[in-house]
Simulated assay, not measured.
Amino acid sequence: MEQGLFITMEGPDGSGKSTQIAYLKEYFDMRGIDTIFTREPGGTPIGEKIRDIILDKANGEMCDMAEALLYAASRSQHVHQLIKPALSEGKIVICDRFIDSSIAYQGYGRQLGDAVRVINELAIEGCMPDITFLMELSPEIGKSRIKLEYQDRLELEKLEFHNRVFDGYQEIAQIYPERFVCVNAGRPKEVVRDEIYHHIDRLLQNRGASCR
């Protein structure tokens, strides 16, 4: 492709994002399409260090705004160092979480409101996804899928917090219907995979993707 393609995967904790991203790796590998898979927070050496700070269960004293700013800092480095350069080279970038996660988790979940959108618009430098898959699953089911000993600092939050995050995702998807594809993540993973593949097929056809 002359122009890159930016795909993001969003959803509550335990919604199956990682499983579907693994399926997408198979999809693009089979077609020989040059694709970069990355994640947030993280994606760069600096971003991964920030990720460790954010998700560390020992950092329970972290205030909500510090958390939001750390996410934005990691995202700014990610966009500058990896995402924008890859897109400018015509590559496909698939990211596990992006700006919508911050708006859902910190804007709605932490109830920081529009301040989260403002700081993240500065961080992304106008770099928005072409399509966002929202894995829809009730927070109660999602949390039950993750063993307690493996839950990070945010996953350990009370169900009320995760319900606010889920409601936030629903509102964001309604605001940007042209970008969001809402996927029922409560079905068998293969059914979810096939639905996502269908949307990717159409997207690549419309963009005229070529194998590299």
Rank of each mutant, 00 (worst) to 15 (best):
A86P: 13
L87K: 12
L87M: 14
S88W: 01
G90A: 09
I92S: 04
I92D: 04
I92Y: 02
I94T: 06
I94Q: 07
C95L: 04
D96V: 04
D96I: 01
D96S: 07
D96A: 06
F98I: 01
I99G: 01
D100V: 04
S101G: 15
S101W: 13
S102C: 04
S102N: 05
I103F: 02
I103R: 00
A104G: 05
Y105I: 00
Y105E: 03
G107S: 05
Y108M: 13
Y108N: 05
Y108P: 09
R110P: 00
R110C: 01
Q111P: 08
L112K: 01
L112H: 02
G113V: 07
D114S: 10
D114W: 07
A115G: 12
A115K: 12
A115R: 08
R117P: 00
R117W: 04
V118A: 05
N120E: 05
E121Y: 11
E121W: 09
L122R: 15
L122A: 11
A123W: 01
A123C: 08
I124V: 11
I124Q: 04
E125R: 02
G126A: 04
G126C: 03
C127G: 03
M128C: 08
P129A: 07
P129I: 02
D130K: 09
L134Q: 10
L137C: 07
L137V: 14
L137K: 10
P139T: 14
P139Y: 06
I141P: 09
G142P: 03
S144Q: 12
S144C: 09
I146H: 10
I146G: 10
L148I: 12
L148H: 13
Y150D: 14
Y150Q: 10
Q151N: 01
D152T: 06
R153W: 14
R153Q: 07
L154I: 15
L154W: 06
E155L: 08
L156W: 04
L156C: 10
L156N: 12
E157R: 07
E157N: 07
E157I: 07
K158L: 12
E160Q: 06
F161P: 03
F161N: 00
N163A: 02
N163T: 13
N163F: 03
R164Q: 14
V165L: 06
F166H: 09
D167Y: 05
D167Q: 06
D167P: 00
G168M: 05
Y169K: 02
Y169L: 00
Q170A: 09
E171M: 03
I172C: 08
I172R: 14
I172L: 15
I172E: 11
A173S: 08
I175Q: 02
Y176C: 07
Y176K: 10
P177Y: 14
P177N: 11
P177G: 11
P177R: 09
E178P: 00
E178L: 00
R179P: 08
F180L: 06
F180A: 05
F180N: 06
V181Q: 14
V181W: 05
V181T: 08
V181C: 11
C182A: 10
V183N: 13
N184E: 15
N184P: 10
N184D: 10
A185E: 12
R187P: 02
P188C: 10
P188W: 09
P188A: 03
K189Y: 09
E190I: 03
E190V: 04
E190C: 00
V191S: 14
V191H: 13
R193K: 15
